Simulated assay, not measured.
Amino acid sequence: MRLNDLFEKYLYDIDLTHQDTTIDSIKYRYNSHIKDSFGEMELEQITYIKIKKFQKMLLDGKYKNNDNKKYSISYINILVKLLKRLMKYAILMNYVNFNIEESRGLETIRDIVNKDNFISKQIIWNLSEFNNFISCVDDEIYRILFNILYFCGLRKGEILSLRWDNIDLIESTITIDSSASKVVGRGQIVKAPKTKNSYRTIYIHETLKKELLNYYISEKT
C-alpha cells in the first residue's frame, strides 16, 4: 500500500472524530509538504531513517514556504508528527509489517528544539493604552466587540459566533459555547469548541454591561 492510499483511509477514519477545520489543516499539510516526498512510496519503504532525513532537510531549508523562506521549527515539528502519526496508524491497522527495530525507531523521532530561541515578552496593552485605542473607534458595534475582546479575553472565533443567547445581562455573564471558523468549500461555520476547557462563563464589568444593554435596546427598537 502506498502512503497516498493510507492517507485516504486515515481521513475516512477520523471524519467523525475531528472538526472539519482540523481535517482541512491535515489535508493541506499532507498535500503541500508530505505527498511529493512520500505519497507514491510503499509503506515498507518509509523507514524512520527516511523520516529523520526529511526532518533534517526541512530544518536545513531544502524545502521552502511560499515566501521562499525556511519553515519555522514549530511547523516542521507539526509536519513530522503528521508523518509519524500516519505510520503509527499503518502499524496499528496492520497495513504494514515493520519489525520491532523499525517500530521503535519511530519513537526516536523527537521534536526539534530551537537552540537559538529566546523567551519573548507577550505584548499586552495596559488599560491606558487600550483606552487611547478605543477612543478612536467610532462605530458602536466595533467598540463593543473590542471591549469584549480586551476585558473578557475571547478568541476571534468565539466572538464571531457570539449570540445574544450567550449574554446574561442580569447575571452579568457571557457564556462561551461555540466558535466560528472557515472551512474550505463551505465558508464560515459555527461549531463547538475544540476542548472542554473552552466552554466557560465569563463575568463582565458594569460599564461593559451597560454598553451591551444600550446596544441591545437600540437594536430591538
Rank of each mutant, 00 (worst) to 15 (best):
F7V: 07
Y10A: 02
Y12V: 07
I14M: 05
T17Y: 05
T22R: 14
T22K: 10
T22M: 12
S25I: 10
K27V: 15
S32F: 14
S37D: 08
G39I: 09
I46H: 09
I46D: 03
K50W: 05
K50I: 05
I51G: 03
L59F: 13
N65W: 04
N66S: 04
N68I: 01
K69S: 07
K70W: 00
Y71T: 02
S72I: 01
S72F: 03
I73E: 01
I76M: 01
I78D: 02
A90Y: 08
I91P: 09
L92I: 10
L92F: 13
M93E: 14
M93D: 10
Y95Q: 11
V96D: 04
N99D: 15
L106S: 00
I112S: 03
D116A: 05
K121C: 05
E140F: 15
I141L: 15
G153T: 06
G153V: 08
L154E: 08
E158Y: 06
I159A: 06
S161L: 14
R163L: 10
D165L: 13
D165E: 13
I170V: 09
T173V: 09
I174K: 09
I174H: 07
S179T: 15
S179K: 12
A180W: 11
S181Y: 14
V183A: 13
V184R: 15
R186Q: 11
G187C: 08
V190R: 10
K194Y: 13
T195A: 04
T195W: 07
K196I: 08
N197A: 14
Y203C: 00
Y203T: 08
I204T: 04
E206Q: 07
E206P: 00
N214K: 05
S218G: 08
S218P: 01
